[in-house]
Design a protein around this nucleic acid. Structure first.
Lengths: 225, 225
DNA sequence: GTGCGACTCTCCCAAATGGGAGAGTGCCGA
DNA sequence: TCGGCACTCTCCCATTTGGGAGAGTCGCAC
């Protein structure tokens, strides 16, 4: 399946009905409803075919290598192995893999992580039919496809400073409503150290209070409440 | 996928067994993928048929009264008119309406509001195929159908004290990271009043600090970050 | 009209938080 | 090996927050 084949098959498909190389699509989502929906939409296209469905990230990786599809549509939140993990494993052994993330989540870190891991496309589940199908064709053709509205978020996410591991520890406990003292006890550090971390966190997130920090952290997907 | 196709396939399916009264299902969800998925699953059942699809709550209400289906599968989060609003409007003019809520959200208040508004069933979108189809049959038969795991949440939600309107105003601003002073300025009340409200909120939510209040409020679906 | 609850406010005080300035340790990469 | 970074900690102080104990007004329901 080299680029020449691909452009050829596209020409044929455009021309009319003849033995056509269909785009072989793998669907990975833990919701049966979504899998059915994608399969129904893709199955109706003349130039695409669903070759497999996975309900977990682990399954998605296995099916990618056993079925050798052209494209995988991947949800980010899945049991066993999450989307980002699955992308990593697939790309590690197959750097050319064409992966489209299709998810409900659009926090900065979700998008950034998926792209960093090697996704070629990123769509939200409320995308329209044509948008989705176009995206599959575009990514299959070697392009990338990310919703314009998400590009802005991506830029914002990248420009923002990254927290250190310890700062994230503190932030997570903070977001669960712990006091400085409790955070310290949980992490086996003194309360003053917690305050130091918090000052750095506030500066990085550009906020003034712990409550603001929680909301910003949620929006950026740094923590889950 | 036009009405003619659908009625045609209905006649055929009926011929196979007997002239069967199919359960007429209306689907209301703003995600085209989910609509397709539900339509595909339901369409394959011998005893069910999808008679319409709505992408907004407003459309769902209109189609309920123009198509007169037996059941509507309703997402809670929809543009124009949300699920709870749609349930209200439908039940107001048709108290016997059989409504199943099918949503990704399972916070206490979502469930409680939907049930209060008159939903007969409440399913999460990660439900399995059979669970979903069973639920449709059960609710059509006049029973109610709520995932056991949700019943516990429902009970918890009902037992918890309800916040007054003003308290909710305060809580929402609190969750957005405002200080007491800012909340007061926003609501045109004094800072001390804000503190009074907060004390009541803390007592009702059974928490000790504003940060805890945020997390609990999020979990219960009282606020959206 | 009486009572109740929501909403508003006050005074007061202890505890927690936010922020400045600085410093020691340990690890990793240039 | 040497700088930089993460992580840890200290002292200090202004501000914010949490909480006790009341109290006045308004509107709604019985």
């Amino acid at each position: 399946m080299n680029p020449a084949d691909r452009s050829a098959s596209r020409t044929v498909a455009a021309a009319a009905a003849r033995p056509v190389e269909k785009i072989r699509v793998l669907i990975a989502d833990d919701h049966v409803t979504v899998r059915e929906g994608l399969a129904a939409m893709i199955g109706r296209q003349a130039d695409m075919a669903v070759v497999g469905e996975a309900a977990t990230g682990r399954q998605a990786v296995e099916l990618w290598f056993s079925l050798r599809p052209d494209i995988v549509l991947l949800d980010l939140r899945m049991p066993e192995l999450d989307g980002v993990g699955a992308i990593g494993e697939i790309r590690q052994r197959d750097a050319a893999a064409r992966i489209i993330v299709l998810t409900t989540f659009d926090t900065d870190s979700d998008i950034a992580n998926a792209i960093r891991a090697g996704a070629r496309g990123y769509l939200l589940k409320d995308s329209q039919r044509e948008e989705l199908l176009d995206s599959i064709r575009r990514v299959h053709a070697g392009e990338t496809s990310i919703s314009p509205s998400l590009v802005a978020k991506l830029a914002a996410g990248i420009s923002s400073e990254t927290l250190t591991g310890r700062e994230l520890d503190v932030l997570i406990l903070l977001a669960h409503g712990k006091s400085n003292k409790e955070i310290g006890a949980n992490l086996y550090i003194s309360e003053t150290t917690v305050k130091s971390h918090l000052r750095n966190i506030f500066a990085k997130l550009d906020v003034l209070s712990r409550t603001e920090a929680i909301t910003v952290a949620c929006r950026r997907g740094l923590v889950t409440l």
